[in-house]
Design a protein around this nucleic acid. Structure first.
Lengths: 226, 226
DNA sequence: TTTAAATAAAATATATATTTTATTTTACAA
DNA sequence: TTGTAAAATAAAATATATATTTTATTTAAA
């Protein structure tokens, strides 16, 4: 019921990092943040310390904290790891999934696809709304996997890819003629619902490989890696 | 160079939990720990807060921290997840591994097997020494996997299984007539060095299934689950 | 220019105040 | 009595303000 101050600050900063309001690589001065969030330095420090174990924040002893910078190596590593882990989760999910699970997949796909076709992403709010549906569909696919640690790891990795995706999508608005993203998702969904493990797994890996390729290209062209 | 107080306290408490000096389920009073480690409450709180994200400590807002209790569900979940993740890491490692990697595997296996044959584990120090070699061999197998996030996740899960293994091994001393553990490891090593991915993977899964079985049995018989 | 000292800025730790939760005591009713 | 609820007290967690330590920056000397 009564959340702790540290918990709130943690959530605020987490959200600020994911949303890129706090820029990758940026220093996180405790005194500044304390003033900004109107709390003492203690809770700020503790929240940052916890964020460190999510890899959204780095720290060097006695030299303070900073937002984890963008990195080409991390981008590849995270997406590849995610591909492997999600393939397992998906395999288990397909084995165990029931009608309820199928319905959730179809429902969340619909939510995502309809949104994409009706709302070109023109600003942060649009992105936020899209991202919610994107995560929802992604989770629905693997949600029948009963290994809670595996799902937790997947969610963590998903979160780590979010900043890259957001940067790419929001900056790429000008070029893009709407997302054709859901087409790939549709294929994956169909394979999953047909309980075709190896096809679903293959499509998933391809999907991630494509994601890395386009994001990487954008980041390189715009010198976004540090 | 200059480690922070929080870092030291974090290491101390981590070590105390893994070694079972701090018992599963036990409450972690900040004032007591502060007195024990001779520091203020701040660093204690921050260290506990960080340990929370490793799942070695749980917390409820305004009600303090406690050592994560033993749980049958977790035991299974962690080992199963570990099996899947280690199978992937092993697959990649076998693909990428070079001579150096092979040598490390053989070396660390020798270190483990020799120790097991010469040192029956009779006390905590023996266990500590064995555990080091056990982790060393385990890591050597997958160390040619170049996905650093995957390895980090694996190390994390390995750490989560350590308390269960230690409790089981140390309490089981009376029954056991030395470890015949290394026999299973030998088979896995041979499959790995023969670059037989599917056999290695299969043996790994079996190995973990056996581990869960014996540990689970011991915990049930002795009512060690909470 | 380079090096050393002095100053400033920032991180980190502490002691203590505040808030929340747990326990005990007291009052009242069955 | 015996049980229940309210009040009082104690204990513990959490937050703050501030002191200390460490690192970064500037100034002065060689």
């Amino acid at each position: 019921m009564s959340e702790t101050l540290v918990d709130k600050i943690y959530e605020y900063i987490h959200e600020d990092i994911i949303s890129l309001r706090l820029q990758p690589g940026q220093r996180l001065h405790i005194a500044h943040l304390a003033e900004h969030y109107e709390v003492g330095p203690g809770p700020i420090r503790e929240a940052l310390s916890r964020l460190t174990s999510t890899e959204l924040v780095t720290t060097i002893s006695q030299r303070g904290f900073r937002v984890m910078p963008f990195s080409q190596i991390d981008l590849r590593d995270i997406y590849q790891t995610r591909a492997h882990i999600e393939a397992i989760a998906l395999t288990i999910s397909i084995e165990k999934g029931n009608d309820e699970w199928e319905a959730d997949i179809i429902g969340s796909y619909h939510r995502l696809a309809k949104f994409e076709s009706e709302h070109p992403i023109k600003n942060t709010e649009d992105y936020q709304a899209w991202e919610m549906r994107h995560r929802g569909f992604n989770l629905a696919l693997i949600n029948a996997c009963d290994l809670k640690h595996l799902l937790r790891i997947q969610q963590h990795l998903y979160t780590l890819t979010e900043r890259y995706r957001r940067q790419w999508l929001l900056a790429g608005i000008k070029h893009s003629k709407g997302l054709h993203y859901a087409k790939e998702q549709k294929k994956i969904m169909d394979a999953v619902l047909a309980r075709d493990v190896s096809l679903a797994s293959k499509l998933l890996h391809e999907h991630f490989k494509n994601a890395v390729k386009v994001i990487e290209l954008y980041f390189q062209e715009n010198n976004m890696f540090n």
